[in-house]
Design a protein around this nucleic acid. Structure first.
Lengths: 173, 173
DNA sequence: TTCGGTAACGGATATCTTGTCCGTCATCAA
DNA sequence: TTGATGACGGACAAGATATCCGTTACCGAA
């Protein structure tokens, strides 16, 4: 098991990170601000993370671990997966809003997309443009989620999944 | 008309910017590096641009001006517009690759999307989820272009437009 | 409960980047 | 030709970064 001190320090840093991103945006604070907020020594930060971006990766890895445990065999299960995805997004809307529209956007988007792609790929049949289609559908879903967040994450997001289904059915033909 | 000195300075800065982004990525160089490359005084940079991001905006504004002059009334004209878009992207692939996957990603994506949305909106009929649909299609197109770039911009991009048409037709129903 | 190992600490530091100031010189357009 | 304007180099303070040190406090296995 991991040393308790390590766990505590990482937790403190990650919590501070989340709070600061939501409050000031990804580029709105320095590492100095971060370690002040986390109440952790400067050296300690660098003992655990190489840069701010590592912290973002750290969070996505956690989330990914959480999501990969869900079953994705049947269409219904995949719908459940997406609902879980939307639910998590909704409950951390402030964080995602800051991420998707800031300096962490590139990494956040890549991570988000890779999580989504796994499920989308299962919906797309073999095709000459399969790779293009998967990229397009993932991009479409991500764009819809982003717009949902920008509009204040109203509703359960079911409209998004419905609209998405429309596109998926087109991809199948 | 604009003072020749002003034109020359801006051109020098923008050329250096393009070269450095393509070579080292958006976050891979400092303003110091930029003015060294452009062989321009530090003060001079700040007399024209507030930050690195302004230079990116400057480039997109140019591109936008170029594209808005194209007609977009008929479906065929809109297809031509998209072909022009893809053509330009292809001939500046190195630049876009660095932008869409780097720190300038947020602004670059916003700009790219806003250029695309105008055309996409014309394809989508009135609908209860019109806004969502437009966002999705724009996102899909952008994702396809990004994948195209990552794969080495092979071909004319016609496959992208074909696949895109499939999705558009689904959105119309 | 002890004890060797390990993590966190504060403080210091060298280096880089940023944005702004100045007076001087070169270039422009009228 | 000339008054206006832009570009220049040099310098500067402020802030951030990443790494060093010796010391202290905590952990968990024996």
């Amino acid at each position: 098991m991991m040393d308790r001190r390590v766990r505590k320090t990482r937790e403190a840093l990650y919590s501070a990170f989340v709070a600061l991103v939501a409050e000031r945006g990804y580029d709105g604070f320095s590492i100095q601000d971060l370690i002040d907020e986390a109440d952790v020594g400067r050296t300690t930060f660098y003992a655990h993370f190489k840069a701010k971006e590592d912290l973002l990766q750290f969070g996505f890895n956690r989330w990914r671990d959480e999501l990969t445990s869900l079953p994705k065999s049947t269409a219904a299960e995949r719908r459940g997966f997406m609902e879980a995805l939307l639910g998590h997004t909704k409950s951390h809307a402030g964080l995602f809003a800051a991420l998707l529209g800031g300096g962490g956007g590139a990494l956040a988007e890549t991570e988000f997309r890779s999580i989504v792609e796994e499920v989308v790929a299962a919906e797309v049949g073999p095709d000459e443009h399969r790779a293009t289609m998967i990229a397009m559908l993932s991009g479409a879903l991500l764009a819809a989620i982003r717009q949902w967040i920008d509009a204040g994450v109203k509703g359960s997001g079911a409209e998004i999944l419905d609209a998405f289904d429309k596109l998926v059915s087109a991809a199948k033909r």
